[in-house]
């Protein structure tokens, strides 16, 4: 007779080496986190990406699994990030007609928001003593996560740090954005949506969409345009900014 404990030992050894394990765990954790998010009526602090990352980190620590081993399995999910970034062109294309009616004001506000977003992150980062790699990870923080990660990786930052910083930026924008704008006496739905899209990307846009269709549409537009403009301006700004 074979001892069941030996069986379990063999099976768990196989499981730990099987690359599909972390693919399944990542998917399952995200589905549960998403369920929690919906159950909380989309409370921004329960952002499913943030919750998933924290739960997975706790799981890796608990079972003493290295990030390299985790990523060997989960990279199948990561690989879809490239095609998904390309697909962001679709909502951008669908929102682009909004630009035509308000061409000049939107263009100027976009350029101002984009430059202030980058410059304020760099200047405040230096003021508070962030290291160079951290600064470069923070510079694209107002841009949608896949593009911010690509920019950070390209320009000498740390994509893993950028992913988390970008999501926290979005969460902060979604929680504090509308109260802040009311304080500044900004009450136009179009302006609120656009500012949320520029400063807090998709998470800010999702919050804007809860307010109104208009705010959501301008948020989506601002997020797409800011991603493109930041990709073009960030390398130029970094070329002249003393780091």
């Amino acid at each position: 007779m074979v001892d069941p404990a030996t069986h379990w030992h063999e099976a768990s050894g196989w499981l730990a080496a099987y690359p599909g394990l972390w693919l399944v765990v990542t998917g399952a954790v995200f589905l549960l986190a998403d369920k929690l998010f919906r159950a909380s009526r989309r409370f921004p602090l329960l952002n499913p990406v943030l919750v998933s990352i924290l739960v997975l980190i706790a799981t890796l620590r608990l079972f003493n699994v290295s990030y390299t081993d985790y990523f060997a399995g989960a990279q199948m999910i990561h690989l879809l990030l490239g095609p998904a970034t390309v697909a962001l062109a679709m909502p951008l294309y669908l929102n682009l007609h909004h630009v035509r009616a308000w061409m000049m004001p939107l263009t100027i506000a976009l350029v101002v928001g984009c430059v202030v977003g980058i410059a304020s992150a760099l200047a405040l980062g230096q003021l508070f003593g962030l290291s160079a790699a951290t600064l470069l990870s923070f510079a694209p923080k107002s841009v949608t996560t896949p593009i911010a990660m690509a920019l950070a990786g390209h320009l000498g930052g740390i994509p893993a740090l950028t992913a988390n910083v970008v999501i926290l930026t979005g969460v902060f924008g979604a929680v504090a954005g509308l109260p802040l704008m009311r304080l500044l006496k900004v009450d136009d739905a179009m302006v609120q949506g656009f500012a949320l899209g520029v400063a807090a990307h998709g998470i800010g846009t999702a919050r804007a969409l809860q307010e109104s269709e208009t705010a959501g549409a301008f948020g989506g537009l601002a997020m797409g345009l800011n991603a493109i403009l930041t990709s073009l301006l960030l390398p130029l700004i970094l070329a002249v900014w003393p780091i």
Binding site: V49, I57, A84, A87, M90, A160, A163, G202
Partner: peptide, 19 residues
Amino acid sequence: LLRYLPLLFVPAGVGLVEL
């Protein structure tokens, strides 16, 4: 792809464990 876009950030985001 866009429907599950948030899920796609998770594997890279877990890299925070090394920071």
